[in-house]
């Protein structure tokens, strides 16, 4: 025969009943030995759990703290990289704009004298070359520093990505 107070008894033991809910359980306990035994078993097992708590090793704690801190830094780094790089990117874009405009202007200039045109063309292409080189250089510098930061943060993100997969 199953006593109908069994589940109430759990709420009673773990302090999840208000005064109104507690009263009938207390009263029932006076007359039901079975429930009193349940209560004693619950007490024993709770004490046992309390006596046998375990702490993680220091190394595990250190590892968690360091990785979490590095993760935070990782996110901060990404923001910092973007803040720093946008200036370089803007500079690169303005050079590109100058380049496009110059090419447009130069190709539309009327040049009656063919020799002078040839001379000017070579001078222009020389200028263009150097301009192209500087744009290339900026792009290269930008990508280099960007990717070295990116690699660093990417590793952090990659390891975090694995954590995120719930």
């Amino acid at each position: 025969m199953e006593c109908r107070f069994k589940e109430k008894l759990l709420l009673y033991f773990y302090g999840e009943l208000d005064e109104v809910g507690k009263a009938p359980v207390s009263e029932h306990l006076n007359s039901c030995k079975d429930c009193r035994n349940d209560l004693e078993a619950l007490k024993k097992i709770s004490d046992y759990f309390e006596e046998t708590t375990a702490s993680p090793p220091d190394l595990a704690l250190e590892n968690v703290l360091n990785t979490a801190a590095a993760g935070q830094t990782g996110f901060r780094e990404i923001i910092k990289v973007f803040r720093m790089q946008w200036k370089k990117i803007a500079l690169g874009l303005s050079f590109a704009a100058v380049f496009v405009v110059s090419v447009n202007v130069l190709t539309h200039i009327d040049k009656p004298d063919l020799t002078s045109m040839a001379w000017e063309t070579s001078a222009v292409s020389e200028k263009l070359d150097s301009m192209e080189y500087s744009i290339y250089k900026i792009r290269f510098d930008t990508s280099l520093s960007y990717f070295s930061d990116f690699d660093y943060t990417y590793e952090g993100i990659q390891s975090q990505k694995e954590e995120i997969e719930l």
Binding site: F49, T52, A54, P56, P57, L59, A60, N63, V64, T67, A68, G71, Q72, Q160, E163, I164, L166
Partner: peptide
């Protein structure tokens, strides 16, 4: 974790995973 798994090494790993999951999210 330790009482559920009964394995120290596994618990050390799982413990770290739990808190890092929180940190990442």
């Amino acid at each position: 974790v330790l009482k559920m798994t009964g394995n120290r090494t596994a618990s050390d790993d799982l413990f770290q995973e739990i808190f890092l999951k929180f940190a990442a999210n």
